[in-house]
Simulated scan of single mutants.
Amino acid sequence: MLDAGRAVDDLHTTLPYIRAANIQDEGLRLTDVNEMPFSAAEARRLDLREGDLLVVEGGAVGTCVVLDHDMPGWSFQKTINRLRPTNDWSTRYLAYVLRSYRDAGIIDLICNGSTISHLTAEKLRALRVPAVQPETQRTIADFLDRETAQIDALVSKQEEFIEFLRERRRAEIEVAVSEVLASGPRLKHVIRSVRQGWSPQCYSWPADGINSWAVLKAGAANGGVFRPTENKELPAEEAPRPEVVVRRGDLIVSRANTRDLVGSAAVVEGDFYRLMLSDKLYAFTLNEDQALPQFVAAVLGSRKWRDLVEMQATGASSSMVNISQSDIVNLPMTLPPVDEQRRILTHLDDQTAHIDSLIAKAQEHIAFAKERRAALITAAVAEQIDVRSARKAG
Results as ranks from 00 to 15, higher is better:
V8D: 08
D9T: 14
T13Y: 00
R19M: 02
A21V: 14
N22S: 08
N22D: 15
Q24Y: 04
D25M: 10
L28V: 09
R29E: 07
M36A: 15
E42Q: 14
E42V: 15
L48D: 03
D52Y: 05
T63K: 14
S75Y: 00
K78E: 05
T79I: 10
P85Q: 04
P85F: 05
P85T: 06
S90E: 05
Y101L: 14
I106N: 07
L109D: 11
N112F: 12
I116V: 13
I116M: 13
L119Q: 05
L124N: 02
A126Y: 01
R128C: 04
V129C: 05
A131H: 05
A131P: 00
V132K: 04
T139K: 08
I140S: 01
D152N: 13
K157A: 15
L165H: 08
I173P: 00
V190G: 10
G197V: 14
Q201I: 06
S204W: 11
W205Q: 10
A214Y: 01
A218G: 02
A220P: 00
A221L: 03
G224Y: 01
V225F: 02
P228I: 04
E233T: 03
E238Q: 05
A239Q: 12
D250C: 07
N257R: 07
D260E: 15
G263E: 08
A266N: 06
V267I: 10
R274I: 03
R274D: 03
S278Y: 07
K280Y: 09
L286Y: 10
E288R: 14
D289H: 11
L292W: 07
A297W: 13
A298E: 15
G301W: 11
R306P: 11
E310R: 14
M311P: 00
Q312A: 15
T314P: 00
S319R: 09
M320Y: 02
I328D: 01
N330R: 06
I344G: 00
H347Q: 09
D349P: 03
D350C: 08
T352K: 06
A353L: 06
H354N: 11
A360T: 13
K361S: 10
A362R: 03
A369G: 02
A379D: 08
Q384D: 13
V387Y: 03
S389M: 04
